[in-house]
């Protein structure tokens, strides 16, 4: 808990400093609106980052295809709604597709790559992303689409900005996911198995951990998160296959904010990135390149967290 408070303190101070820097002299209500708007975007980065970190901690794979999986889920859910299928059923089927795709990748592809180093595993998942993206672009014509949820209509006003229930749901689910997954990984037997597996697959299997079952569960969980993220992106960003697929790259930045380890840090860091990105709108020279914020922040995080190390030694990944 203390670590979480420290994180909040550091990220909060960073946002505050930036707010003072770029928004000096701007009226406070305006800044408040940009902060709230940024938190809404940041929570999307965070949600995507959480999905990445969960899978990475459990299996050692950084899944670049998770955006594509989410995108496929969103497209299918949208299509089913268009065909007049009851909305709730459509969403559940969309989420199920995400789980299915993730599990299929886990069972068919990953066993052949188990011996590869983490970077190669990560880069290879791009192949899966391209397969999904190509299939979706082939099946659906390029039309403007809008993915609606009933929660879009309800809203609360925070600091002068309307925040829809969908956005609140993203924040709530992110926090819930952080708590539940942290507890599962630390307190339960399956969580222990997952961590052992991520640490050393060979030794884990030697000491009798049911590797395939544990891995499948981890991928299914990550697939569900990807699919949910995809639906949220479709609703809150836009339902364009390429856009959702490659939103994974800023989400990686959020994952880096938690050093690919700490879920609370991903959440706090991701939200802070969104806020900083949004605040940059107030700066004339920087506003056209404000999406650069997550990347700059992630690079700084990587540099800072590795500052204690002088030189690395082979084998110490």
């Amino acid at each position: 808990m203390r670590a979480v408070l420290i994180s909040i303190g550091i990220w909060g101070a960073l946002c505050l400093a930036l707010a003072l820097l770029v928004a000096w002299g701007k009226p406070a209500p305006v800044i408040g609106m940009f902060v709230v708007s940024g938190m809404a975007v940041g929570s999307l980065y965070a949600l995507g980052g959480i999905g990445l970190v969960v899978l990475y901690r459990a299996t050692g794979v950084l899944n670049l295809a998770s955006g594509a999986v989410g995108m496929a889920s969103a497209m299918v859910a949208w299509q089913l709604v268009q065909w007049g299928i009851f909305a709730l059923v459509s969403w559940i089927l969309g989420l199920a597709l995400g789980v299915l795709l993730a599990v299929a990748y886990c069972r068919v592809i990953t066993p052949y790559m188990a011996w590869r180093e983490p970077v190669v595993k990560a880069v290879a998942s791009l192949g899966f992303a391209l397969v999904i993206l190509g299939t979706v672009s082939f099946l659906w014509p390029d039309d403007p689409r809008r993915f609606e949820l009933p929660t879009d209509k309800a809203f609360v006003t925070i600091l002068g900005l309307r925040v829809t229930a969908t956005r609140l749901m993203v924040v709530a689910v992110s926090i819930l996911a952080v708590i539940v997954i942290s507890v599962v990984l630390v307190r339960t037997r399956i969580g222990l198995h997952m961590r052992a597996l991520a640490n050393d697959r060979r030794i884990a299997s030697l000491i009798g951990i049911p590797v395939v079952r544990v891995e499948t569960m981890a991928w299914a969980m990550a697939g569900l998160l990807s699919a949910f993220t995809g639906l949220m992106f479709a609703n809150l960003v836009r339902l364009e296959p390429v856009v959702i697929t490659f939103l994974i790259i800023p989400c990686i930045a959020a994952a880096i904010a938690g050093r690919l380890q700490s879920l609370p840090d991903v959440l706090i860091g991701g939200i802070a990135m969104g806020v900083i990105e949004s605040l940059l709108t107030l700066s004339d020279p920087l506003k056209s390149i404000r999406p650069v914020a997550p990347f700059v922040i992630a690079s700084v995080v990587l540099l800072v967290t590795n500052r204690g190390r002088r030189l690395t030694f082979a084998g110490e990944d």
Partner: peptide, 18 residues
């Protein structure tokens, strides 16, 4: 002007309002 890489259109909306 909106960077097409940005997932966030809200800030541009606020800019337009401003």
């Amino acid at each position: 002007l909106l960077n097409p890489a940005s997932p966030d259109v809200n800030s541009s909306l606020l800019e337009a309002v401003a």
